[in-house]
Amino acid sequence: MTAIAELRGLGMRFGPMAQGVHALQDIDLTVRPGEILGLVGESGSGKSTLGRCLLRLLAPTAGTVRFEGDDITAWPERRLRRLRSAMSMVFQDPWSALNPRMRIRALIEEPLLLHCALSAAERRARGEALATAVRISPDQLDRMPGELSGGQLQRVCIARAIATNPRLIVLDEPTSSLDLSVRAGILDLLAELRASTGSAMVFITHDLATLRLIADRVAVLYLGRIIEEGPAGRVLADPLHPYTQALLSAHLSADPAERSRRIRLQGEIPSPINRPPGCSFATRCPLAEPRCNAVQPPLLEQEPGHIAACLRVPEGSNRLVPPP
């Protein structure tokens, strides 16, 4: 099975060479057809940047990006345009992602206008069907973006992204500003879309419960590197890397009676500008040893398809104990 999208040795640096921000480093990632890949990680760890590189909205400073086998790393925008109907993105911030001077209807119909040979009436009908699918009511279609709430805008963005039935959709925190019932509806919609069109999705989120619900595979990013990757069930049930363990323990239960047993991380998050030579988590890791500051831990496969980058994994001393 050929991959939908593939990143090899990907690096992204913003700003001048000497003091630029190293947003991504040595990323190897494969998105397979029809799968939902969950992407989690510290904020600022490069998740959005990775999504942008995947769709070549950014040109990476190192490595290659492949889409359905083609090396698109150096394609100019003019050439990429043909691919834009096959790949789409839901951006993180719905307030700034929509042209404030276009009506909601026009915004939802835009991808259809650009990529599909439809008559105006067909486009209108299809746009309304999309709006219904994301629960935007007809009276909202003739409004401007400034006249909708955050969650409503987010749904408009989702409608735009799924309009052309793309084969790859990057969803950057698509449900974070949605209320629970709408969120459930959207997740259902995405699952249904995947089932009917076989779209692959990269689902960036901080909500681990959502991930558990929808993702097939999970990759965890920390400071621009993938530190753990594997089948969703395994990573979420039995995380190997100490950061992933801390992340999962910090999940807030919706039950007020349940005491949270959060592993509190102490220490500074190193700046992405001058990153330490060893493990980038070492400054906060409760299990860090002296060697962690010196050696960059390699990504090793611990069980089939489940890899993690921590020096203490091979010897089995990688378990954090949550507070009682």
Binding site: L57, M89, A97, P100, R101, P111, L114
Partner: peptide, 24 residues
Amino acid sequence: GFVESAVAAGNTLPRLLFVHLMPN
């Protein structure tokens, strides 16, 4: 953001300039 999202949707350069940027 909306310029990037217009690029991601596959707008041509002229449309990007005149439909998206110009009114704003």
